[in-house]
Design a protein around this nucleic acid. Sequence first.
DNA 1: ATTAACTTTCAATTTATTTTGAAAGTTTCA
DNA 2: TGAAACTTTCAAAATAAATTGAAAGTTAAT
Lengths: 168, 168
Amino acid sequence: MELDEAKQKFIEAWGKLGSEWGINRTMAQVHALLLITPEALSTEEIMEALSISRGNANMTVRDLIGWGLVEKQLKQGERKEFFYADKDTWNIARQVAKERRKRELDPVIKILDELSKVKGDAKDPAFKTFNKSVTDINKLAKNVDKTLEKMIKADESWFWGSILKIFK
Amino acid sequence: MELDEAKQKFIEAWGKLGSEWGINRTMAQVHALLLITPEALSTEEIMEALSISRGNANMTVRDLIGWGLVEKQLKQGERKEFFYADKDTWNIARQVAKERRKRELDPVIKILDELSKVKGDAKDPAFKTFNKSVTDINKLAKNVDKTLEKMIKADESWFWGSILKIFK
DNA sequence: ATTAACTTTCAATTTATTTTGAAAGTTTCA
DNA sequence: TGAAACTTTCAAAATAAATTGAAAGTTAAT
């Protein structure tokens, strides 16, 4: 396979995976493009490489910066802004975990905490089932939360070393 | 908070979380409804409870069965089909992990394996960057894959016990 | 202060996804 | 067999999400 073809495939695969996980396809593709590009790219170059509009390229790049996955770079003597993706895979995974935890998991846990407190007739099957499901899911969510928190703080080799060791 | 209000909130929260994770909102809501309902419900009852059409209810319930989260129940002397959700949270988590792994992670790993094999000029920064990103992501994906595999086979208390123990 | 280079915004459009509902299909039983 | 009870399908409609592109905004250099 040629390098150019391989790059296309990578961008496509990353875009598809992103969209299956609630991340806008274009955003995942821009990220993929920056990941496999050694130097920082301008908005112009991103538009060109992925055939997207200026507005889309601008918004997407800003979102990626918001996710902590991309940073702006200024080049000596150039007015234009260039964008560069962190290439450290572990940082990427951590950053994504961190953001999704904050944006999605935490709010749900807050609601589950409230719902766990709802009182009702302990004899009523409707109440019993509700209560059990909610408290069980709450526990699970909290375990996931703790694990993510540790992961966010952890060093890669230590993290996987520990996890994979368990499963010998 | 009243039980009925709490139920509504739960269905809403689960639906929102689902849609943030690439699962159709209605599907997550039907699942939520069945989770907090002690007995199995008919298509009719699901339509009623969530104000959705017959077609939608039918398709959604079938998807949930496909995901292994819901099962059909037949009641003595009734022609209608009833639907019942597995209430075991650990089973649910495992089942979701299993399906998403199969549907989404495995295909990506297959592509990454291919892309890792692409040969190129070791002096070329474009190639070097491509190659490094792809192989790194591939390693990470394989670690996630192994962890999911173990999780799928594991017993809940053992799994979380081991994981959380690592983090003291 | 003017202009050229560049970035941002956002209403309108396009594309993708979800939902509806009525018709067609199937099963059961009198 | 006929018809009622129920399930499935799917084209059309509704809704939601992403994208465009041109105009407005900003910045830096002369």
